[in-house]
Structures are given as C-alpha cells and as structure tokens.
Design a binder for these strands. Structure first.
Length: 589
RNA sequence: GACUCAGUAGCUCAGCUGGUAGAGCAACAGACUCUUAAUCUGUGGGUCCAGGGUUCGAUCCCCUGCUGGGUCACCA
C-alpha cells in the first residue's frame, strides 16, 4: 500500500497542526503572511551591527552629538501605545530599549511596517535589526530611536516570559529539568546563566595561559582506550567494530601523560573529558573535565606551591580578588594554603591516632566510630573512609591534605621519611576534593608490585581496583625522571569560583535521562484496519497511539473521540459512520 | 536504591468535607505618540500525568504506574 505525494503532504500538514499549540500555529501563519508581503523572515544577507546594547548604554552622553547606530538581537518585550511603541532588544551583551514611532518608521503613506509587521506579525523571541539614533527618554532610559527595522529571524515557539522588576523575577523559568534540557532557552531568558559560562571560559583560559607561560606543552591523549587506567573507577564500555573488540572510555589521562614524561617533555598537560560509569548527582556528572599536569624533576612540595599560586591567579582573573563566595562561606584562595597530613587530620577531627596502627586495629577504630565497613576494605580504604566520613566536609578553606597511606595510592612514590605513607596530597576546598597530586612513582619494579596489589583487591571484590597496564610498566622500565603530577577537577573548580553548588549549573549540557517519546504504531497498522490515511493523525490525537489502545474501547466512544478531534481542530474531514468505526475496531486482533 | 514533595492553560501558579476548573503573564480583537512587570476594554485557550478503585458524582480520597524535583545512600 502506498499513497501519492499530495496525500502524504496533507497528512503531515494535519499532523503538524494537531501537534502544535494555538500560539505556534499563529506564529506559522504570521510567517506566511510576512512572506506574502515580500518580507523574507530568514534573510541570507549579513546584518552589519555597529554597537551592542550595554556598550551603548554605558557610553551614552547627554550632551554628545546624536549617534546613529545599527544593532540586532531578540525582541524580548513589547509595549505598544498606539502610534508609538517601546520594545527591548536582547543581544549578546545584554538588553537595550528601542523606541519606535509609527511615523518615524514609516514616513510615507504606507504604514504596514509598523501596523502590520511590528505590531502584529512580530513576536517575542524574533530576531530583528534596527537602525536609529541613541537618546534618553523622558523616564531616563537610554534607548534607540528606530528609523529602520529588519526582520532577521522568526521564532516559531513562544519563549517563557520572565520579567524583572527591582531585581525580582516574575514567572521565573526555573524548573531544572527544563532548564538543562533546553539550555538554549535558559540562556535566553534567565539572567546570569551566560555569565557563569563566560567565567568558566575565563578560568580555563587563565589556567592554559599560566601553564603555557611556565613552558609546559598542551597535549591530547586517547579517549578511547583498551585499558582504562590511572584512577579507581568503573569505565564506560564501547565497541570498536573494525577490530571487533570492546574498548573503554578513559577514566583519567595520567598513564598516557607519564609516558610523555618518559619521552622527554619538560612538562605536559591535558585539559579534557574523563568518563566514569557511576552515579549522577549534584557533584557528579558521568563525563567531566579534568586538567592533569606532569612536570619533570619536581616533587609534591613544589606542586603545592605551584597549585596555590595558580588558583589564586585564577580566582583573581574571575572574581577580581582572591576570594569567592559559596553560599554563606567566603573562600580565600590567597596563597599559601594550610598543609595537614591525613593522619593528623583524622586525629584532629576524631581523636584517634592511627599512626603505625595495623589494619585490624584500624578496623576496631572504625567500629568504635560506628562506621559501616566490610571485609573487602583494606587498610588504605578504611583510612579513606574515616577521612571521608569525619574530616573531608570540614575543610572549607583550601587545605592540602598530605601523606596518604600507600594502600590507597598505587601510583604514588613512597614518602621520603614516613614509612607506609606516600608523597601525595589532595586539595580540599569547601568540604570537597578539588585536586589530587603526587610525587609520581617512577620505580618500575615497585609499580608492578602496586599493580599486583590492586589485582588482589580486585579479587577480593573491589570493582574499582586498577587494572595492570603492561605498556605503562614498559615505559617506566625505560626510565622516568622524578616527576610531580596533579589532576584538578575543572567542573568543581568552576563551581568554587562562581559560587555554584551543583555541577549541572557549570555544565552547559549536563547528562540527562533521554526524553521519553510516546510510542506510536506505524501508519500501515492503522491502514490495515481500513482506517483512511487522513484519519490516522486524528485517531492518534484522540489518544489512540497504538492499535492496541483501541482494543477495549466501545465503538460509540471511539466514534465520538475522533469526530470530536475533527470538529475541535477544524480539520474538515467527513465523519465516518458508527458502523464504519465498528468495522475498523472489529479487525483488531 | 530509600525517603519525601510535586505533575492543572504556551509560562508561573491557585483550587475549601468530593459537585467536571481560576488568576497573572503570554496569545487574539480594540483604545492609546516617552512606556518600562506599561495601562484600559473584550475574547479564545484545559486528556486537571496515566490506569484502576471508592462514590450518584473524583483535579481532590485510596491503590498502582510514569515523569521530575529535593534529601540521603552509592561513587576518591
């Protein structure tokens, strides 16, 4: 069964109308009307702008000679008062009011541009360009007096209307679900969203500039890996057809960057995405941005002072000072930061001194602290749990927590003087880990042993233990200079620098569950029952998206439902008889 | 995964022991040449998330499910 093109076009036309809201249909009609008037709603030509909203407002001087300008943007509000109107145009920098008087826009006899185009066919959300001069209204608002208006792009879907008065937002568009899914709308209608992402760009630019000036090389390493190493996390698995083998999305850049230090770079860094197949919440997104840096001949002490200077510089670049507000907390990134060994931190917060204690003794401490633990946890994991439970959240001001136990640091060099501990620090800010760094382990034999220990943990049931990377070991065997490395979570850094409390606010497109689409049976299934093609969209509009949905319904009710749609949406089809409908429904198996 | 709250017009939200729905904005028609959440008059617009149950009658009560928010757990 097939139909001619015209029928298909007609069905699509009905379907499109049935799926649209009244306002969307009206906007489409306005679009047609514009074309009928000879106005192209989506013109191809460049529209030359000579200024931007906020610049015009900031640079305006009442006593300066009149300034002709040309600006473009989205029409965001409209206040029509008969023969004169005010509107606000939103461009990339902000908003400015424009004043349109009928007789200035249309000096001749034909007033269509004002009466028809501006007042009736344009809608909020449309892009327009205007030419005119800048002036100050009686109410004191700097505005553009419009002499020429160009339609640049018609908007077919109505934007949520958010209005502001005295800093209070009315009818706010603040449902997180909608804001993240339709970030483009969020950026258009909500104040301050764009600036968060501009700050994010500033942070990354400052970071990159600082590392470049220090003489380090920006590199890119594989995202698709056959062994996902360098961190403890579950990876995403994907499939490479050409080799018919599974691959992993990287969970860290560490092992590749260290190979490059073996290869002779002074310093290498990468700013890129890592992927971890774990939960999603206000501080975790499955893909997130990390910066990792490795510098030869350095140690973790050097890295601490490098890091605090780096962060202070970034904070000043973003906020103009070395402080950032997080809710009620003011965080100072003024270097230097406090340094505190992890066992001292635990002693400080819990009163238990774990120095020199065995795994069994620590297990007892955990029980005394009423913690939930299990047998798969080794000594390192236990200490980590105690720290996470009682200490981590308490470090609001930037604090370097140093000298972690070897069990939880398989890629870290042993401490130069403290047995059982490693030369590692984590930087805690606002109660969360922001960075993780070490004096890198460069003893290939020790490294192999550490990997084997990880394998034993994996055998015990730790599904995050690291997998042994033979090629990385081979690289180390050629010799790696003493090296210090660090990883900084960029998303969390942006949160701290911009005062945001959820990671979704600093990611343009945070991971969301896929949008659910109502399943619909193919047209052929409806045609098979004898339902005419024209009627299929109406049947589906009435709520019968699947043939199975019609199975139980009484013919009378079904008849009423579909004829109701026909009438309500003025589709204009001839209604079937109840007998015909009964016949269709009778064919359902 | 647990708990909890929510789902009503294009948007933000009301809706009383249970009697099939309202406001503001947006839209449409009209008035208005310096307004600014413009104002004034009028109009249209709803699968009250879905499916069961109780009831003469359910947006409301009960059950189940779906979707989402929040909190917690998991997750360096």
């Amino acid at each position: 069964m097939y139909f001619c093109t015209l029928e298909i076009i007609y069905i699509r036309y009905i379907m499109s109308l049935l799926d649209l809201s009244e306002q969307e249909i009206l906007r489409r009609e306005s679009l047609k009307e514009l074309r009928a008037m000879g106005i192209e709603p989506y013109p191809a030509a460049e529209y030359v702008v000579t200024g931007y909203s906020t610049d015009l407002k900031n640079n305006f001087k009442d006593d300066a000679p009149q300034q002709e300008v040309s600006i473009a943007g989205r029409l965001m509000t409209r206040r029509v008062m008969g023969k004169a109107s005010f509107a606000e145009i939103q461009d990339s920098k902000g908003r400015i009011q424009v004043y349109i008087s009928r007789d200035d826009l249309c000096p001749g006899e034909n007033k269509d541009m004002y009466n028809t185009v501006f007042k009736r066919l344009l809608d909020i959300g449309d892009f327009i360009g205007v030419k005119g001069y800048v002036f100050r209204t009686q109410m004191g608002e700097i505005s553009v007096h419009v002499s020429e208006l160009t339609v640049l792009s018609k908007s077919l879907k109505p934007l949520p209307i958010v209005k502001y008065k005295d800093g209070v937002a009315y009818d706010k568009f603040d449902d997180p679900e909608l804001r993240y899914r339709q970030r483009y709308v969020d950026l258009v209608v909500n104040d301050g969203i764009k600036s968060t992402f501009e700050k994010r760009a500033t942070i990354i630019r400052t970071l990159r500039n600082t590392l470049d000036e220090a003489g380090y090389t920006e590199v890119e390493t594989p995202t698709l890996q056959s062994i996902a190493g360098g961190a403890s996390a579950r990876p995403f698995i994907t499939h490479f057809n050409a080799l018919d083998q599974d691959m992993y999305m990287r969970i860290a850049t560490e092992l590749y960057l260290k190979r490059l230090i073996v290869g002779g770079f002074e310093g290498v860094y990468e700013i890129g995405k890592n992927f971890r197949n774990e939960g999603m919440d206000r501080t975790h997104n499955p893909e997130f941005t990390c910066m990792e840096l490795y510098v030869q001949y350095k140690d973790y002490n050097w890295m601490m002072s490098f890091t605090e200077k780096l962060l202070e510089k970034i904070c000043i670049a973003v906020n103009g000072c070395a402080e950032s507000k997080m809710g009620d907390n003011v965080i100072s990134f003024k270097a230097p930061f406090r340094r505190l060994p992890i066992l001292e931190a635990i002693k400080e917060k819990t009163g238990y001194d774990l120095d020199g204690k065995s795994e069994e003794e620590i297990r007892e401490v955990c029980k005394a602290l009423k913690m939930e633990i299990d047998d798969t946890m080794g000594k390192g994991k236990l200490i980590d749990e105690i720290f996470g439970e009682f200490c981590e959240g308490t470090f609001i001001q930037p604090t370097f927590i140093t000298d972690y136990p070897v069990e939880m640091s398989p890629l870290t060099k042993m401490h130069r003087s403290k047995p059982g501990l490693t030369e590692r620090f984590e930087l805690m800010v606002n109660g969360k880990e922001l960075a993780n760094a070490y004096s890198e382990l460069n003893d290939p034999i020790d490294q192999e042993e550490r990997f084997k220990e990880q394998m034993r943990l994996a055998d015990k049931g730790d599904d995050e233990a690291m997998i042994i990377d033979q090629d990385f070991l081979r690289a180390l065997q050629y010799g790696m200079p003493p090296t210090s490395g660090i990883g900084i979570g960029i998303d969390r850094l942006v949160m701290l620098m911009t005062g945001q409390t959820t990671i979704q606010e600093v990611l343009l497109f945070p991971q969301m569950k896929p949008e659910k689409k109502t399943p619909k049976d193919a047209d052929a299934k409806f045609l098979a029952l004898g339902i005419p093609a024209d009627w299929i969209p109406l049947v589906q509009k009435a709520g019968y998206n699947l043939v199975a949905d019609m199975k139980e319904v009484k013919p009378q009710k079904f008849h009423q439902d579909i004829c109701g749609v026909n009438k309500k949406y003025k589709v204009g089809l001839e209604n079937p008889s109840v007998d015909q409908v009964t016949e269709w429904l009778g064919k359902i198996e």
